[in-house]
Structures are given as C-alpha cells and as structure tokens.
Design a protein around this nucleic acid. Structure first.
Lengths: 223, 223
DNA sequence: ACCTGAACACCGTTCAAGT
DNA sequence: ACCTGAACACCGTTCAAGT
C-alpha cells in the first residue's frame, strides 16, 4: 500500500480505538454499574492492558465524559411547542427523562452547566424561549441556570433515593425520621408516616411549571 | 471503683470514641479535603488501626453521615419573617449558605430529602410557610421538595464549577463551548463569550424568589 | 506510534486472634 | 468489649522498555 494512510506515515498501527473503548465501557456500565468500570476491568474487556487505554483517553474522568457525550447524543430531541413556557417545559422534561435513564449520571452530572456538545440544543431552547417571552439575554441565561439547577437537583436527589431503596440503606433516613417530634417540628409530625409516600411521587413537571411561571410571568406582565 | 460504670460491667474499656473519630475526620477533611479521608489515614490520625474504627462507625458512608450531622448542627438557624414567601426564602438561603460552606458536601448531599436530624427545622419552616400560604399538606410537601431540588442542584452544580476552576480542569467545558455554532444554536452563539460571566453570578436568591412566587401565588389567588 | 510489564502507592473490609 | 495483624481483593497512574 503506497498510499499515506494515517498510520503508514510511520509507527505501529493501532489495535485499540477510542470508539471501541467507549463501547466496551458502556457495556460494562450498563451491565454491572459504574462502580465496576475500572481501568483494569476495561482493559481486560478489550483484551489489552490498563496502560494501553491511556493512549486513547486522558484518564478515568475523561472516559466518563466520553460516556456522557454518548448518552447525550442518544437523548431524543422533542418537537417543541411555540409558546415559551410550554417550550421550556417540554425541553426540560425531555432532558430530565433522558438523563434520569442513565443510571450513572450522578457521577458525571456534577460537572457543568453546559453539559455536553450533544446537549447544546437544550440551553438553546430554554434561552430562546426566555428571550421570546421578553427577558433580556442576561435574564434568559439566569432563567436557564435556575431551571438547570432544579433539574440537576431533582435527578441527583431522586437517584440517591432510588439507590437507597435498592441497597436497603434506609437506616439513616429512618433515624432522621424517628427524630421528628411534635414539639419542635409540628408540621412534620402531623404529616408523619405520610411523608415517604408524598416524597416518593414524581412531581418534576409540576414543580417545573411553577418555576417557569415564576421566571417568565413578571416580565410578560410588564409589557 | 465499685460503681457499675458503662464498661465495668465487663470487657475492655474503650480507648476510642465515636466523638473522637468524628473530630479527627473533620480535621482531616477541613485540612486536606474529603479525598484524603480514608479509613487507614483516619486510624493513623487517632493512633489506632483501621479496623478499630469499625467498632464505632458502621462503614465509610456512615462516617460521612456523622460528619454531615455535625455540619448541619453548626448551620445558624435564622429568625424567620412571618410572610410565607419571605419565610421560605430566608430559611432556604440560610440552609444553602450553610451547606455551600461545607466543601465536601456534594459527596454526602446526594443522599436524602430529609437530610439530617439537626436540619429538620428547615423542611418544617418551608412546609409551615406553604400551609400558611394556603396549600394543603400534600402540596406543601411537594413545594418543599421542589425547593430542595433547586437548592441541592444549585449547590452541586456550583461546587462542581468551583472545583473545575481550582483544578484547571477547564478543558471539557471549553470543548463544549467551542462547539457552539451560529447555525444550530444562534442564541448561545449570540451570547458567546459572555456566557462564563453570566453563568458565574450568584443568582440563587432571585431564582428562588421566582420559584416561590410560582409555587405560592396560584393558591393565594384562588382564595 | 502504540502497547506491555512491572512497580508505586494506595484503597475498604473480613476474619481470626489477642487482651 | 474492644483492639490488632495479616490478608483479600482490589484501585489509578507513572515509568521504562519493547515492537
């Protein structure tokens, strides 16, 4: 082969590729959870050595970010309604549903406000809706961040609750719960046993609606 | 000593105490960060062996929860105004300021909606304010959770941003930022370089106010 | 240019034994 | 009752060497 392919310029042809590594990592994570994804295990999975991986990914955190990009690409992008409030609600709900399905999300979520190249449509949609509703750019970015905080918090806290339910690590929660006393926290005491059921509901959308109302309404009025 | 003290009933007197362990853990975490807090290091710190610790704390996660309780106890509890919306805002701001000061909070925050016995005043204050504003108990719990999601998300995302700034791990964010293109995400492109400055502002309180407005306003109107 | 082997400096936790 | 020692089964990452 006289043609100058990537590797014929000299050196050894690669046996591993970043794509192969990411695919193997995804398989491990989906099959056995993020905690099983170690550099050693991944090397075994692709039939190589731990150190060979470092030629293709910066380090473990870099690998996680590649995994996040892959997941973000797969989140279906919804058709968005034209009404600003509805637009924000549909975009945010799609994003949170997509991210909540990625079980290891919490480990990586804690990373940024502009999450991933593949997810840029989301801040775009929210900022756009906010501007159309009458906010200026600064207010629109603020509205986006407020919604993102709510969304990220919902995902993180609910993921923790799910993990707790699965692990049977209910001890701490129950201890806190048992400390509720009618003298000091009468409202919580009155709610009592009903708390877990009330707190277990999925109210993401309703909360979001209230938030969007609060964020967009005052400006709409002042026009 | 003929008196039946705790340990004179039989067995060996304890050399270690839970309080001592928690105090040492706190010192390590405050001095060198949560990642330096290992069972082995902590054992060295209290002049003992790793396994001796397990007589006093369940495991590493249990230790972290004890640390969280300690931190929660230290959060100053503000005098709360009587107006429901202002009450929620003051309580939430105090809580988030207190938690944001605990640098390792993210590791543990991801754990519950009823955080700690020492912090029960916070859901109590929010639920109470919501009920006074006219919500029923179910709606009040929902309002609390919505606010907690926002607060937890704000803490987690901003802590991640801070860590990124400190580590110089800005690479990923910049890569995402560089991928913004005017054709596909015109609003983000128009904001351009101004994003980091806009996203860096502390707008917790304003966002919270919008959220509280949205959560409490409709009911107030319907009376 | 890419991959391997060996090593460094660690982890949390269990088990059996000592005092 | 409480603590210790040794061991199990791992980690991520660096460095020097091989092909």
């Amino acid at each position: 082969m006289p043609e100058a392919t990537e590797w014929s310029k000299g050196g050894r042809p690669p046996r591993l590729s970043r794509a192969e590594i990411v695919a193997a990592a995804k398989a491990v994570v989906e099959g056995e959870g993020i905690e099983k994804l170690t550099m050693r295990r991944l090397a075994r999975e692709v039939g190589s050595t731990p150190m060979a991986l470092y030629r293709h990914v910066r380090d473990r955190q870099g690998l996680l970010l590649l995994l996040l990009d892959d997941a973000a690409e797969r989140i279906p992008r919804p058709d968005l309604p034209t009404d600003p409030a509805e637009r924000v609600i549909e975009a945010s709900t799609a994003m949170r549903d997509g991210l909540a399905e990625v079980p290891w999300i919490v480990e990586v979520l804690v990373s940024d406000d502009l999450l991933s190249t593949a997810a840029l449509w989301y801040p775009e949609a929210v900022v756009d809706a906010a501007i159309r509703a009458g906010l200026d750019e600064s207010q629109a970015v603020q509205a986006y961040r407020t919604i993102w905080y709510y969304t990220a918090g919902e995902i993180v806290v609910r993921a923790a609750a799910g993990r707790r339910a699965a692990d049977g690590t209910g001890t701490h929660r129950e201890a806190v719960f048992a400390a509720i006393d009618a003298g000091r926290t009468p409202r919580l005491a009155a709610i009592g046993d009903r708390w877990p059921a009330l707190a277990g509901r999925d109210t993401y959308r309703e909360g979001l609606r209230a938030l969007v109302d609060g964020l967009l309404r005052p400006v709409a009025q002042s026009e």
